[in-house]
Design a protein around this nucleic acid. Structure first.
Ligand SMILES: [Zn+2]
Ligand SMILES: [Zn+2]
Length: 312
DNA sequence: CCTCAAGGCCAG
DNA sequence: CTGGCCTTGAGG
């Protein structure tokens, strides 16, 4: 028995079908479910260089930059170039003026997060460095973000992506879609910080680092210094225990969905609305279970007004 | 194998 | 010095 089961015999269910049809702009009941793992390999970076705004050509020394800023950064670090700003250290850097003040340009390179350690002291060519996996993760994160809001004709819930394809009403579908529900390619490691690509690397070419690291490091420190006051130590474990994990919720909901789908025959397959209802169902249940298991909830005292103290 | 960032090259 | 294009080569 599902709280949200679409029941064609009730007014409420009928209106929700209507609502869904309005929402989707077409006949929901004729839709078949498809679950996709990921969007097609979209053209990766049409972004602009954070330093000069020119077109990005790939990841260079820690982040996506244009070709010329890559070259500039490399030359500067390799040859230990030192520039001096003739102005007030705040020259505008854009595609047109990027060559005017190398000092400010380099400063901007560092401030947006380009990494000195990525310039090799031994000038080794090819291969990959430690930033490789980082690039990969960042790329995944970005294309995942993109697919989330530019979804063509589908809905994504808990990483379960529903896509609709419509077949002419009447004929039995010759190829019943296998509908293997799966996660979207979610590597979501909590919050995705985009700009400075994450963690500092331990030991890497200190001789190249030294000259500049001072200023950069201090900037990072400043920004990471701002953290909320920690809760009382004794409460910490409890609070962590109470934390509702998105991944767990997903797994829970997905697990039920998969079992539900698997247990159904080919001809009483859940339609899209049905699936969405199951998702809502299990979410509610999971939420309630979570709340009940939370110590803070358990500590709540329930008081009933007595006749004496009741105010009319 | 292929990918793609890192270094090298060199005309402008 | 600049920046587009080329060559490398570890990792997936
Ligand atoms: Zn640039
Ligand atoms: Zn300047």
């Amino acid at each position: 028995m599902s709280l949200f089961s679409p029941d064609p015999s009730t007014q409420a269910a009928l209106s929700s079908v209507d609502y869904a049809q309005d929402l989707l702009g077409s006949d929901v009941s004729g839709a078949s479910l498809q679950v996709k793992t990921e969007d097609s390999w979209e053209d990766s970076f049409r972004e602009t260089c954070p330093i000069c705004g020119d077109k990005v050509s790939g990841y260079h020394y820690g982040l996506l930059t244009c070709e010329s800023c890559k070259g500039f950064f490399k030359r500067t670090v390799q040859n230990d170039k030192r520039y001096t700003c003739l102005e007030k250290q705040s020259c505008p850097i854009d595609k047109a003026q990027r060559t005017r003040c190398p000092s400010c340009r380099f400063h901007k390179c560092l401030s947006v997060g380009m990494r000195l350690e990525a310039v090799r002291a031994d000038r080794t060519r090819g291969g990959r460095n430690k930033l490789g996996p980082l690039y990969r993760r960042d790329r995944q994160l970005k294309q995942q973000r993109r697919g989330l809001d530019s979804s063509p004709a589908g809905i994504s819930v808990y990483g379960i992506k529903l896509e609709y394809s419509f077949q002419p009403q009447g004929g039995a579908p010759p190829t019943p879609s296998p509908s293997p529900c799966s996660y979207e390619d979610s590597q979501s490691t909590g919050l995705g910080f985009s700009s400075p690509l994450e963690s500092p690397l331990p030991g890497c070419l200190p001789e190249l680092c030294d000259p500049y690291c001072q200023e950069v490091k201090s900037e990072w420190l400043c920004s990471s210094q701002v953290r909320p006051p920690l809760p009382s130590p004794s409460l910490l474990p409890e609070m962590m225990h109470c934390e509702l994990e998105e991944a767990a919720l997903r797994a829970w909901v997905l697990g039920h969905l998969q079992r539900e789908l698997a247990s159904r025959g080919k001809h009483d397959r859940l339609n899209t609305l049905g699936i969405m209802c199951r998702v809502a169902d299990q979410t509610l249940f999971a939420l309630v279970e979570w709340v009940r298991g939370c110590i803070f909830f358990k500590q709540l005292t329930v008081t009933y007004p007595t006749l004496n103290s009741a105010i009319i």
